[in-house]
Design a protein around this nucleic acid. Structure first.
Lengths: 211, 211
DNA sequence: TTTCTTGTTGATCGCACGATCAACAATGCT
DNA sequence: AGCATTGTTGATCGTGCGATCAACAAGAAA
């Protein structure tokens, strides 16, 4: 017999409320996808009226776009940070490939795939997608160039090869999204593939087990 | 001053009308994507009332699913057909990779990517996606096994490698969808990658120019 | 010609979306 | 205490979606 819990949301500072909305958007995107990022959905999670979300966000398109950028940029930062601890380019490239294929970030992969198609009808999102892809490509390109300099790799066009590796990783992850079960040794196979591309010795990207 | 062209659609046999609807659905999917596959959209293209489309299709979900399957299966058939004319496994695998990356089928790629996410909310579509992925994987697996038998390749798990190559191709194509410009030599780089995976000599998958 | 079958229409329901805005009320200031 | 500021509400508009179904009319059968 308690009263319905529909109280009026308590007043907060614009900065605080805005942050709440962005955080709710982030959670919804990760849990239900970018498509579920609607005015009413975000409002419900924050616990406010739908009009309030619209008041803080000029347009849902931009919220979708910025939410995508936030999530993806965080992942890039996180993974790129792991690389610095590795001794050399082969180990860095191996770790990079292995880490990205470890299936612990499938929620982010789902967002990537969704963004690719949503970007066709959301120009702001399309711009974010291109931006974040560039960021990822630069991470790969840096490792490839380092390997060239150290003599571990032999690549004439590091930028192109970086794009290729990125595309492969994306494709394999997208595949895991649909066909999650069954395939094993994805990291090993991809490592061999990358060895072929960068001209490294077969097995030189082997990941150290037990890390 | 001619009369408005909104005549009543002339009566056709169920088989004929049904075929018209399926064909319209196919065109819409290729031109505007699976998301644009709505009752009213299909009806407008055929030139009939929306209710008629619903009358021939139990559910839009199944129309989306079957349209996806039709388009993708046709592509698989077409590309698989090209392989039989090649002399040996290396040439077949090379042609396969090159053909799939030639950017002439980006409309189909867009449908693939869309299906991956739409499948999360459309079980019939998800089933179709898995089915068509299996079909593609079998094409690759066949070539890899032939190469193993002939001694051109050296692969312990042909099925897994086939999945990998398929994933790579999908990823690179999806990438081309968003970053269409800039990257060159995609075929060559991927060929080297695949060489690394199947244990073929570097350059053995080189595509014969001018075909 | 008349009757019957059936392909076809279009209004309609319920729902969800983004966006807008007048009204409201909590808070801080004087 | 009274007032002004401003964070917040919720109804509302227009659009588009899938689905449903009584009414209609074209063509075949009698």
């Amino acid at each position: 017999m308690s009263s319905t819990p529909e109280k009026r949301a308590l007043r907060k500072s614009p900065a605080e409320r805005s942050a709440e909305i962005l955080e709710a958007a982030r959670e919804i995107a990760l849990e239900e996808g970018l498509t579920a990022l609607t005015l009413r959905n975000v409002a419900a999670r924050v616990g406010v009226a739908s009009g309030l979300v619209a008041h803080y966000q000029p347009t849902m398109d931009t919220l979708v776009s910025s939410t995508f950028a936030t999530i993806v940029a965080a992942e890039t930062q996180e993974v790129a940070g792991l690389l610095s601890q590795q001794p050399g380019p082969p180990e860095r490239l191996g770790l990079l490939v292995e880490t990205l294929l470890d299936n612990s970030r499938l929620d982010v992969t789902a967002i990537w795939v969704e963004a690719w198609t949503l970007g066709r009808r959301n120009e702001a999102l399309a711009a974010s997608v291109r931006e974040q892809m560039d960021a990822w490509q630069k991470v790969f390109q840096g490792v490839v160039e380092d390997g060239n300099a150290s003599g571990d790799f032999n690549v004439s066009d590091a930028a192109a090869v970086a794009w290729q590796i990125l595309g492969m990783v994306d494709g394999l992850n997208a595949q895991a999204l649909v066909r999650w079960n069954g395939i094993t040794d994805r990291g090993t196979h991809l490592a061999h593939a990358v060895e072929g591309m960068v001209g490294a010795a077969r097995g030189s990207l082997a990941t150290t087990p037990g890390v």
